[in-house]
Computed example of a mutant assay.
Amino acid sequence: MSNLPEIASLWIGDHLSWLEQLCLKSFADMGHHTTLYSYSHIDNVPDNIHQVSAGEIYPSEPMLRHARTGSPAIHADMFRLNMLKKTDKIWVDADMYCYRPFDFKTKWVFGWEKPGLVCNAVLGLPKNSKALSMMIDFFQDEYAIGPWLRPWQQRELEIERDAGSPVHFTAQNWGFTGPTAVTHFLKKSGEIKHARKEQAFYPVAFKDRNRLILSKPNVEEDDLTKDTYGVHFWARRMKPRLEEKENNWPRVGSFMRGLLEKHGINPDDAPIPARNRIDEALLKDPELCAKLAIEGLRAEVSMSSMSRKYLVDEQFIKECVAKLENAAPDIFRNVATNLDDKCD
């Protein structure tokens, strides 16, 4: 299958976990010329994976990290678009498994994650794609306000911009430069017509992801059909589960365990590292929690805006509000009252 399209991904860091090794190796084992771009040497890239400097495509500085999480996902999003503009390779996230060769006769390679949303974990576009050009042009303005956002979200960002504090795209809500933006521009250009069904690359939905690593319920033959080319492993949530609860191994008899055996990958040789957790002091700070609860209850701005302002997850704000509403401990209630007095 020498005529198979070339596959490429990006890894920011100097070490792969076994999950990335498995996914990258699956493409090479299926006969794809597979390139891994990186900004520094990676010491445990599987055989037959070609390691290339990412600087050939997109500069490493400034490294575009999400302000709240520190994730370089935004940098990867910008790299992906520029790679598609400069090469004929198909982009895949490093947690996309090759179930069968990507033997496509078209340059448009992407699929629905769920109704209304195209995921960019697999993305192939011709260099002259209108959607690709529009995305690259749009993100030249790092303070741009996404027309795909809800009207109230756009208005909130416009107010901040007009007040002299425009929100940089690294400070916007998680995923701003990702699938929602891609879906918007594919629709705008009309190229959305090339989107493949969910079965193509996302046969196991995000909500069902644990089936990939559990013995029961397992991934059944009905999940993976003749139309399935890839299987997304949802690494952002899957890797913490594997590291924290599964001792780094998918369970015996699981779909993923079988793939490790098929491709000769040993998790003990490249374990998933522990994730960076939110500062425990932040989570236990009653004053901050009380302040967030009060602002949340007042609802003068959205939780999205508060999340950007305080660099905390919206779920954390909701938990703080719940504590205040549900008879918080006296010490918490006193702090909240004192803060409320100061605000008045």
Rank of each mutant, 00 (worst) to 15 (best):
W234P: 05
A235G: 04
R236C: 06
R236M: 11
R237Q: 13
R237T: 13
R237Y: 07
M238Y: 00
M238T: 14
K239Q: 15
K239W: 03
P240E: 07
P240Y: 03
P240N: 06
R241C: 08
R241F: 13
E244C: 03
E246K: 11
N247V: 02
N247F: 09
N248L: 12
N248W: 06
W249H: 14
W249E: 09
W249N: 06
P250E: 08
P250Q: 11
R251P: 00
R251N: 09
V252N: 12
G253V: 09
S254K: 04
F255H: 10
R257P: 00
R257M: 12
G258C: 02
G258N: 14
G258S: 08
L259V: 01
L259S: 01
L259G: 01
L260D: 02
L260Y: 05
E261H: 07
K262W: 05
K262T: 14
H263K: 00
G264V: 07
G264I: 06
I265N: 03
N266Q: 09
N266H: 06
P267N: 04
D268L: 12
D269F: 05
D269A: 14
D269V: 04
A270E: 02
P271Q: 09
I272C: 11
I272V: 14
A274K: 14
A274Y: 01
A274E: 11
N276C: 04
R277D: 12
R277F: 05
I278M: 13
E280L: 13
A281L: 13
L282A: 08
L283E: 11
L283T: 13
K284R: 14
D285V: 07
D285I: 07
E287H: 08
E287V: 09
E287N: 07
L288R: 08
L288I: 11
L288T: 06
L288W: 03
C289I: 03
A290E: 06
A290T: 04
K291W: 04
K291V: 05
K291P: 00
L292N: 07
A293Y: 02
E295C: 07
E295V: 00
G296F: 02
L297G: 12
L297Q: 14
A299K: 13
A299V: 00
E300M: 09
E300T: 10
S302V: 02
M303N: 09
M303A: 10
M303E: 10
S305D: 01
M306W: 04
M306I: 05
S307T: 05
R308C: 08
R308T: 13
R308N: 12
K309S: 11
